[in-house]
Design a protein around this nucleic acid. Sequence first.
DNA 1: GTCTATAATTTGATAGAC
DNA 2: GTCTATCAAATTATAGAC
Lengths: 202, 202
Amino acid sequence: MIVEPSTEQIIKEAAKKIFVRKGFAGARMQEIAEEAGINKALLHYYYRSKEKLFEGIFSEIFDHMIGQLKQSVTTDKPLIQKIEDFVDRYISTIEQNPYIPLFIVNEIAQNPDRFVEKIKSKQVFPELAGFFQQMLGEMERGNIREIPPLHLFLNILGLCAFPFIAKPMVKAVSGMDEDTWEMLMKDRKKEVKTFIRRALMA
Amino acid sequence: MIVEPSTEQIIKEAAKKIFVRKGFAGARMQEIAEEAGINKALLHYYYRSKEKLFEGIFSEIFDHMIGQLKQSVTTDKPLIQKIEDFVDRYISTIEQNPYIPLFIVNEIAQNPDRFVEKIKSKQVFPELAGFFQQMLGEMERGNIREIPPLHLFLNILGLCAFPFIAKPMVKAVSGMDEDTWEMLMKDRKKEVKTFIRRALMA
DNA sequence: GTCTATAATTTGATAGAC
DNA sequence: GTCTATCAAATTATAGAC
């Protein structure tokens, strides 16, 4: 049974697409309306303002990413496998939404205060603390090499997310075409996992 | 002998500051004028339009970064030392201009075509090709472990740049204050170099 | 060169008919 | 709910005096 999407849903999808590509400052209500196949007035009928529309979109996207992030970290597996699950899941998520990481990082940078409160309520820190404890435990037991957990976490995030954040720059600088890029990314999960494993294993 | 900066130079500095923080779409000519301590009309007197002003700023910043990048890669040193020099230099450069990486990546993402031509003239690819050849050589000789050069290069770039690109997000998510962040970054060069060395050495 | 004042354009938001 | 028409504010750009 196929339900056709409500106007509200159509607007949300259109807004998501435009906001994610152009950012809040660069997005135009007119463009969102066109993308949705309606007019500007209707945008304001459903959402009172550009600000409110954006707020809804951003929350949805951010919650989804945080949710993904938590899932891999919360399981009961041994550290190395947990890290590799994290890499697989995180890169898969990004591959499906390649513009998202740059979008999130950018909007928070533009307006950090707006998000501090929202994020606190997400309670991601306890999960991370557990993850870090597990790292420290493995180091004490000599199973992995010494490295401050936060640096290791930054390394993992960076190895996963950076290529997608920097893709337009890398392609421009190297003159790489889209096919070559895709071939490169096809191996990315494997290469990242190998790189991390080598760095951690004594 | 101290020469006081010309109005043109003052404008350029002000514009750089505002553009880098807000991006092209988010920056306002009024704000740039205020930052420079002049009025909007004078901006248009020296640079014809917002677009032209931005173009000049971006080129200068981008050229500087590419120049830094090339320097470390072009020397005659052994690979591992070349990589470690690169990390030191790159992170130092970023620390002095923490907003630059996100700015560059973002503006290229917004308007890739604008830069393809400009970048080609920079001839960064030959230098990179030499760097990659050196990597392959070291792998053949068994001095470092096997890894596709482009992946290794992405890893190095990501490990250096990502923390600064994601700083606002990381701080927001973890509730970290500025002092703690600075303590973390104080060790960043060392941690990155160690991580890479471990991953490469058999 | 630098300013004030203002034009021209873009853009978010609303009024009101259907 | 959806549209057309229009307003109000913001923003880039220019004219013209000094």
